[in-house]
Structure formats: structure tokens, C-alpha cells
Amino acid sequence: MPMAADEIEAMIRAGIPDATVAITDLAGDGDHYAARVVSPSFAGMPKVKQHRAVYDALGGKMGGVLHALQLTTAVS
């Protein structure tokens, strides 16, 4: 069962409370998304750690229930 965009956003916000999150359904199938996550907590982190923080917030859903996520992160 695919994940809804609002569920992805809620999970990221729960894991990174100060984040601004924008989710886009890339294929209209509820299975391929893009996420832009901007957070002051990313300051001083390399991109790999920023992405890992987002994946951690998704609680292991990536690669299973959530098939594809094009991820962009930035410091606000």
C-alpha cells in the first residue's frame, strides 16, 4: 500500500520538528515522491547526514512502503 504525501510530511515533521517540508507526487501513483526539507538543525551537517536524518524520521519506510523519494535538503 503506497504512502500518502501528508503521511510522509507528518513523519518528517515529527522527526525534525523545526523543518519546513514540501512533498510532491512525481508520478501521480502515490509511490514516487520528491521531498524538500529545510531545517536550521542541518547547519554544519554534510548532505549525507542531512539525508540520513530524513530517512531516520521515516522510520524504515524508505525502500519498503515508500518506494522512491527524490530528496533535497537545505539549511534555513
Score class of each variant (00 low, 15 high):
1 M>E: 11
2 P>C: 12
3 M>P: 00
3 M>T: 13
3 M>Y: 10
3 M>R: 07
3 M>S: 09
4 A>M: 12
4 A>R: 12
4 A>L: 15
6 D>V: 11
6 D>G: 02
7 E>I: 08
7 E>R: 00
8 I>P: 09
8 I>S: 02
8 I>R: 14
9 E>A: 15
9 E>W: 13
10 A>M: 06
10 A>E: 07
11 M>D: 11
12 I>H: 06
12 I>P: 00
14 A>G: 03
15 G>D: 02
15 G>F: 02
16 I>L: 10
17 P>Y: 01
18 D>L: 12
20 T>G: 07
21 V>Q: 01
21 V>H: 03
24 T>C: 05
26 L>S: 10
27 A>M: 15
28 G>Y: 10
30 G>D: 11
30 G>T: 13
30 G>Q: 09
30 G>Y: 03
30 G>H: 08
31 D>N: 13
31 D>M: 13
32 H>D: 15
32 H>Y: 12
32 H>Q: 14
33 Y>G: 00
36 R>L: 10
37 V>M: 12
37 V>P: 13
39 S>I: 00
40 P>T: 00
40 P>K: 08
40 P>D: 01
41 S>T: 08
41 S>I: 04
42 F>K: 04
43 A>Q: 10
44 G>F: 03
44 G>Q: 08
45 M>H: 10
46 P>K: 02
47 K>H: 09
48 V>M: 08
49 K>Y: 07
49 K>T: 09
50 Q>K: 08
50 Q>V: 02
50 Q>T: 06
51 H>V: 05
52 R>K: 09
52 R>L: 02
53 A>C: 05
55 Y>D: 08
55 Y>R: 10
55 Y>Q: 06
56 D>S: 09
56 D>Q: 09
60 G>A: 03
62 M>T: 02
63 G>P: 03
63 G>M: 01
64 G>L: 04
65 V>F: 03
66 L>W: 00
66 L>Y: 13
66 L>E: 10
66 L>V: 15
67 H>P: 13
67 H>Y: 15
67 H>W: 07
69 L>I: 15
70 Q>N: 15
71 L>E: 11
72 T>F: 14
72 T>K: 07
73 T>A: 15
73 T>Y: 06
74 A>D: 11
75 V>N: 04
75 V>S: 04
76 S>Y: 07
